[in-house]
Nucleic acid binder design. Structure first.
Lengths: 154, 154
DNA sequence: TAGATGGTTTGTGTTGCATCAATGATTAGC
DNA sequence: GCTAATCATTGATGCAACACAAACCATCTA
């Protein structure tokens, strides 16, 4: 790390490719999610809540890098459909802890089932193993799995 | 393929993670690209043109999955800065072949250099080898490398 | 008790689209 | 040669997903 090896191979930048691929998934996901009453932004929030367990609104906003006032609106959508539940944190009653409801988990599962065709289409050039590798890299890069978005619940 | 092996491990959906990670890169890239007179959407177009060589506007629109009228505006931005050149295709004079100029290639290189810190930050949890693996998977998924967006030039 | 924090509502503005209509130049097919 | 189709262009409209600001209430901290 201290002494960088000078290699002939130029460093590849993944950012633009990431954005492109994400867009391809997103464009196809929208029409699949619409009949389920979901937007991509909803799906992402549900995914985070499922993968990381419950967390405060602020922590969710930080994780998703969305402004706090916009998180309110997003969560209002989800709460209106009973897909999430907000409750006051016992440690600090200013805070809401947000959790996936059973209905939310089911909706998410249904959405993911419906998105199979999307991923099959967009990742057509990748084998199952490569898709799994991609998932692992994305998860690791996002820091998903080891800690919740914030340790929120006792 | 005909008989799916039933495995205990549920299939992971990468779409939401992709979108999240792409957003993280994008949000940080914007302020890095702005002093270079570029937007993320510009960067992506430049990247495609560099990686795939010149192609027609329509092919570029298809590759980026952006509507033809919006591609016109995007390319107008880039052409105004002399980063791309449009010329009539000899095979079909209705078509423009779009190519990166030298100035465009330099601007792109400068942008990618500037984006090093962004990628270091967002991909902090990935090793160099993992970042390279991610790049390879993204490239393969996008179908970059073997064919241009369309074989356009003789 | 005063200041800070978390959430909420409301409003404004920007960006990146999709879509549409109309136009001109060019090509393809009859 | 003529008609219909294609490619690019301009301009307009509308939507979604934000960022940001202001104001407010409830709650916490020092």
């Amino acid at each position: 790390m201290a002494s960088l090896p000078v290699v002939n191979q130029p460093v590849h930048r993944s950012g633009a490719l990431l954005d492109q691929l994400a867009r391809r998934v997103r464009l196809r996901s929208e029409s699949v999610l619409a009949p389920l009453g979901l937007r991509v932004r909803h799906l992402i929030a549900l995914t985070v809540l499922r993968d990381r367990g419950g967390c405060t609104q602020q922590a969710l906003a930080t994780t998703l890098e969305i402004d706090g006032t916009n998180i309110v609106g997003l969560l209002n959508d989800l709460e209106a459909e009973n897909l999430i539940a907000r409750r006051r944190s016992p440690e600090d009653r200013r805070r809401h802890v947000v959790e996936l409801t059973d209905a939310g988990a089911k909706r998410l599962a249904k959405a993911e089932f419906a998105l199979a065709a999307v991923e099959d289409e967009v990742f057509a050039a990748l084998s199952d193993a490569q898709r799994e590798a991609l998932y692992g890299l994305l998860q690791q890069a996002l820091g998903t799995g080891d800690d919740g978005c914030v340790a929120a619940i006792d």
